[in-house]
Design a protein around this nucleic acid. Structure first.
Lengths: 205, 205, 205, 205
DNA sequence: TATGAATGAGATTTCATTCAT
DNA sequence: CATGAATGAAATCTCATTCAT
């Protein structure tokens, strides 16, 4: 039981390397198992299939991140809007939670973000953007209701979610150092918090 | 001579469909040629290889877009910086050139942006971002030199290029209607022009 | 009519290059015709097929050589055997005819000898050896008849033909300079003439 | 475990037949695997690729032969030259070792010698000739040093290596019977030993 | 727990050749 | 005289996956 977990781990480690080098589609299970000193059959003992192997690398880090994000969105939706804008502290706190969770498994997340084409995870970022979209739609609608002559600009709302999520994607993708990442992200968040409502509302004709 | 061009076109059309459905890597040349009522050999008469076929769809639209973009960057680098900020008209004009060029071959560009993984074009967006980076680095440095105690924040500069390019990517990807696209992009450009210098400079310690 | 011969020649020249580089089997007709600024169809106008193209390069030089060789064999068969051994002058004369004929089209012969695998010419050397075999069988039998208790050793006879022909093959293959070739071949011929009858006869039990 | 080795062997047997009939280049892996009642994939389980399959037939016999040859050359280089000429016993012994090793796997060697064009083994005979060349160059130089006014004729040296190696090639190629082969080769060896030094030296001008 | 064997389907690519024009 | 288009057949190779042992 010791040994099998070792082998499972070996497979995961070699899979990481192979997926990173070639991307999901072109990665070879034969090579992964050979690198681990095992055979392809071993992969199918531990994992359901190629996607399952990829998932074994990526699921946990992804879930951790998702949980932090979802918790944040839930919290925000229960706030007053007035609070949203002013409490930049909240957003800093969010970043301080999220960034470490992301950098703890940076390699897995990198795989997910850049090397998952062809896998069942290839749309992960899009899905998160959509989630974000929905979360902020609530907030925006509430606010729009309080602004006579204004309504939510659906496109802008979506674009904003896009920018926001991609700020984090860009961060983990381009900045290897966690400390620096935190330094970078704060002004970006401030900037987005400050501007988003203005961009998201349009004249209601 | 009528028939040959027809067949070439048939191949391109069927390739478009197949690439769009399955992405470059999983697309099958057999299926493409069969759909066109031809054999795989025919593909290799008209095109060098799979990448060549993809290129036949994508090269021209890409080049048109690149030319407009590069021309714009060149023009900007010869301007005074003071001009840059105020002349929102220039940027509107840029958008008014670029958007039609993009929508003229929206399907090809969509292929390039979303379905090119595994092809020789898979890094196209990254390359454009890097070009943008370099173009704006010049501008930012000039400006920083005129602001005592300030210097360029490399990360922010790159992130900004990223946001900017992805604004257009998001646009063509999510907004099928050209007119609406133009409406959307203008406030986004204004917003970016207004804020970018502030975000791009940091205190020089 | 001027032009077509030019094109025919262009094809032959490019074919020479391609066959030399890749050998008959792996040579590509498409590449040959493209190098000549023509299309594959052109090849089929001038030549029957791939073998025909190869033949257009190789046939004439081969025939010239064969004619000299065959003439020599015929002459020898009409000689007395006693003459054979003594008249080293005859063999020198033979070499002095053959070597120039071979070096006149050394490139074509090289093709034939080293790059014809897969073509209808791949057994050319073997065939020549067999011819040689037959020619000398006559001579050897006559001589054996005059030596009581001796008979022709078939294997040695064949081996000798082999060595003899390959002396020329080796020459043209390894010695680019015609003058030197002639210098090399003479002692080899002498040596073979001197020894062959001894080796070719065995005791008749 | 019985069955697997059987299938591997079946593949090798069918490959032998196919390579023998068509030569390496034109041999079809599909046909080989079909003849063996398997699929092409099976070949790639047991062997790296087409060359690997050919090697599986040919490597061991070739190595055995090479070992005997190399051992012989090493021994010769440590002898006095005077010994070389006189000790025809040594060369007989050599032949008595080499011939059986060659005939033990005559079919594999035939493949190597006559059907390997296009494979990674196509230059095997040339390489052996070069080895021979180098081995005898030593010997010839030593001897030439002891003959005032003589030097080694490089061309003749190479030609002699050529003749020598091809004597064995011719043997295995043309004489199916091992006993007879041994009978044939001995006078040939004697003949070559006797003459080679004379042919290999030339006047030093 | 994992192997070793093998499948079966499919991939892209290459080629000599043909033929209407 | 030569093109341009296309065929049709085959080629080697790769892969994820399965399964008896």
């Amino acid at each position: 039981m010791n040994e099998n977990l070792e082998n499972r781990q070996k497979l995961i480690d070699c899979a990481k390397k192979e997926f990173m080098e070639k991307g999901f589609s072109k990665a070879s299970l034969r090579k992964i198992s050979a690198d681990a000193g095992l055979t392809t059959g071993a992969i199918y003992f531990f994992f359901k299939d190629k996607n399952g192997l990829f998932g074994a690398i990526v699921d946990e880090p992804l879930n951790k991140v998702m949980q932090i994000v979802m918790t944040h969105y839930s919290a925000e939706q229960q706030e007053d809007f007035s609070v949203y804008e002013q409490s930049s502290g909240d957003h800093d706190e969010f970043a301080e939670q999220l960034i470490p969770a992301m950098y703890e498994n940076r390699d897995a997340l990198l795989l997910l973000l850049e090397k998952s084409a062809g896998s069942r995870y290839e749309d992960t970022v899009d899905k998160i953007i959509n989630l974000t979209d929905q979360a902020y739609a609530e907030l925006a609608k509430k606010y729009a209701a309080s602004c006579p002559g204004k309504k939510v600009d659906e496109y802008m709302l979506h674009w904003f979610s896009h920018v926001q999520i991609n700020a984090f994607v860009h961060l983990i993708t381009h900045e290897p150092d966690e400390k620096k990442a935190l330094k970078h992200i704060k002004p970006i968040i401030d900037y987005m918090v400050k501007e988003w409502i203005e961009l998201t509302l349009e004249d209601d004709v």
